[in-house]
């Protein structure tokens, strides 16, 4: 098992190198003179020249790249033009907010999509199968920011069930002491149920928005995988041996159908991390997505670059995790490794 994890980690290295090269090239592709750009519009010629030397832009490209990689290795992502703060610090502070939102969204989505897919597969052609088909087709067509706004209108403005879509906590509640940075977990660890409810209330709508968005691919893949597995010989044998329907579907069929579902999770994460940016904008969520959007509007490139790099590294890591998980579930992969 350890060798398998090690091998997968080695395979992730080319992706990481590619990611670093692309994010480096993105800054060099900035229109005009990057030094003038970083110096700001009011800078004098000497100031621009000074910045050029300071940023090492007078050096050849390969030296600049070396410098970029050394800075990265030190955890230095540059500084924001507008706030003057180091980008890495800001991203670290905001990452838990995004992580909490994305994870809860994914959990809700899986909790709905997997049973839905299984039910649709066990009764093909039934009402639930048609419902599954409609939901999955509609789900991929819904712009995620639109779903979010509709939910806000329904549950905040019309019904008054949800709080105003303004961040992680209402202004009257102070955040729990930071341990993991996830308010739900921190408040539980501190035993403060009031804060737990307050943060859960803020989280429900954005998490639901993400869940509706990622429901479709998971449900679709679960249904397809279950259909394939249920038609196989070993399920027929299990049925013929008189095992209960529950045992056949859950222990026999579902465990085997999980493999393609887990593979789809990689793609789902790609969508989720992108959708996260839009959802954060709708709900004024103080995560790294809204950080990047604010920087984009101010034409402040260092935070955007840091954000793209962070997201890409997280995505590579998630794919690695999925690969390892795959190995844990499918013993055949372990034997081959």
């Amino acid at each position: 098992m350890l060798t398998l994890i090690f091998k997968r980690m080695l395979m992730a290295i080319p992706s990481l190198i590619g990611v670093v090269i692309v994010t480096f090239l993105l800054t060099r592709a900035l229109p005009g003179d990057p030094a003038a750009y970083f110096a700001g519009p009011a800078a004098t010629k000497e100031a621009v020249e000074q910045i050029r030397v300071k940023l090492g832009l007078d050096q050849p490209l390969i030296v600049q790249f070396g410098r970029y990689v050394t800075d990265l290795a030190k955890g230095d992502l540059g500084s924001s033009l507008t706030t003057g703060q180091p980008v890495a610090k800001e991203i670290r502070a905001r990452l838990p907010a995004s992580a909490e939102l994305t994870l809860l969204g994914l959990i809700v989505s899986m909790a709905v999509a997997i049973p839905l897919g299984i039910l649709a597969a066990t009764k093909p052609g039934s009402m639930i199968d048609h419902a599954c088909r409609v939901i999955t087709t509609a789900g991929v067509s819904l712009p995620v920011f639109f779903t979010g706004l509709i939910l806000v209108y329904l549950f905040y403005y019309q019904l008054g069930w949800a709080p105003a879509p303004l961040g992680r906590l209402d202004i009257f509640t102070s955040p729990p002491k930071s341990i993991t940075g996830l308010y739900l977990i921190d408040s539980l660890l501190a035993g403060n149920l009031e804060v737990f409810w307050a943060s859960l209330k803020q989280l429900i709508l954005p998490a639901l928005t993400l869940a509706i968005f990622s429901l479709a691919p998971i449900a679709r893949m679960t249904r397809a995988a279950m259909l394939a597995v249920l038609a196989s010989d070993f399920v027929r044998t299990a049925r013929a041996s008189g095992l209960s329907e529950f045992t056949v579907i859950v222990t026999y069929a579902f465990r085997n159908a999980m493999l393609p579902v887990i593979t789809t999770l990689g793609m789902v994460f790609s969508f989720l991390l992108g959708a996260n940016v839009l959802v954060e904008k709708v709900f004024a969520w103080p995560g790294i997505g809204s950080f990047a959007v604010e920087a984009l509007i101010a034409s402040d490139f260092a935070p955007v670059q840091g954000f793209v790099l962070t997201m890409a590294i997280m995505y590579v890591a998630l794919n690695l995790l999925i690969d390892v998980l795959y190995g844990l579930i499918d013993p055949r992969v372990r034997v081959e490794a």
Partner: peptide
């Protein structure tokens, strides 16, 4: 290797 929307941004 990038989340697609993020790369587009």
């Amino acid at each position: 290797a990038f989340p697609l929307f993020v790369l587009a941004m």
